[in-house]
């Protein structure tokens, strides 16, 4: 089995988000970047399946050289080798084309991703890659098991889940509770240094979307406190002032 795991490089979940003065880009000063938390589920599950069934796990990131520490981290967690497509990931379709091109070259059986990136919240790269390759995408999956050539997945739908079986190559986007994401151990960190990391140049068509401006949400007015003794007054305020009940 050949697994391709796509990882995105995102600001740590505790980051206070600010933008450059022209509001055109994230202000990266002082921001700690991590592997997108959902992608850790994809990575760990791929490693678990490889340990069970044999094979190879490749991680792929579309990003500039500053993402390499997190690619090395993925290698330390247990991926065998890595590909970095050397480009600024400025649009989901652009990213999807790079992943699809690499997947075609490498002949992967399963392409694993996270359910969404926690920075741009697109929820879209997996569907685009499936379509570009003409194979099914199962998104978002809470469970992934393999038996011979058939995969059994649980796909979350609003209000429930579907049990889906697919055979042949497919794309899956991962979320909890698929597995317990692993952290690197000392041996992993040592061996990661010498694992192959190939850098390739981007291909494909131009992006079809352009971000023109970022903005922070309007500031809250400040909290209105109601004394606990007269808690019932809150309900009156919710009806008469906030008009939400």
């Amino acid at each position: 089995m050949k697994f391709l795991v796509c990882i995105s490089n995102v600001p740590d979940t505790t980051t206070k988000i600010t933008f450059t003065p022209d509001n055109k880009e994230l202000n990266k000063a002082g921001v700690q970047f991590v592997i997108n938390p959902w992608d850790e589920y994809a990575l760990t599950r791929a490693i678990e399946l490889k340990e069970k069934l044999g094979g190879n796990v490749t991680v792929l990131n579309v990003g500039e050289a500053d993402t390499e520490p997190n690619i090395r981290k993925a290698l330390a967690i247990g991926a065998d080798d890595a590909i970095r497509v050397n480009a600024k990931p400025t649009d989901a379709f652009f990213v999807a084309q790079q992943i699809a091109a690499a997947a075609k070259d490498g002949g992967y059986d399963i392409i694993l991703m996270g359910k969404e990136s926690i920075d741009y919240n697109g929820f879209q790269v997996h569907g685009m890659v499936g379509e570009l390759l003409g194979i099914p995408t199962v998104a978002p999956a809470m469970k992934l098991d393999l038996e011979g050539n058939t995969a059994t997945l649980e796909r979350e739908i609003e209000g429930g889940k579907e049990i889906v079986e697919v055979s042949g190559p497919f794309v899956v986007s991962c979320q909890e509770p698929m597995c317990e994401p692993r952290i690197p151990n000392m041996r992993g960190i040592m061996t990661a240094r010498t694992k192959p990391l190939k850098v390739v140049e981007p291909t494909g068509e131009a992006p079809r979307t352009q971000v023109t401006e970022y903005a922070l949400p309007p500031k809250k007015q400040g909290v209105k406190l109601i004394p606990a003794e007269s808690a019932g007054d809150l309900i009156k305020l919710l009806r008469n002032e906030a008009k939400v009940i």
Binding site: A92, F123, Q124, G127, T137, A139, R155, I157, E158, R208
Partner: peptide, 24 residues
């Protein structure tokens, strides 16, 4: 809708119809 169904379908459609896609 920006739902599990909407985004799954919308992302495939954007490639098939060569459309610009915006979610959320």
């Amino acid at each position: 809708a920006n739902s599990n169904i909407g985004t799954a379908v919308g992302s495939r459609l954007s490639v098939r119809l060569q459309a610009s896609l915006a979610t959320n």
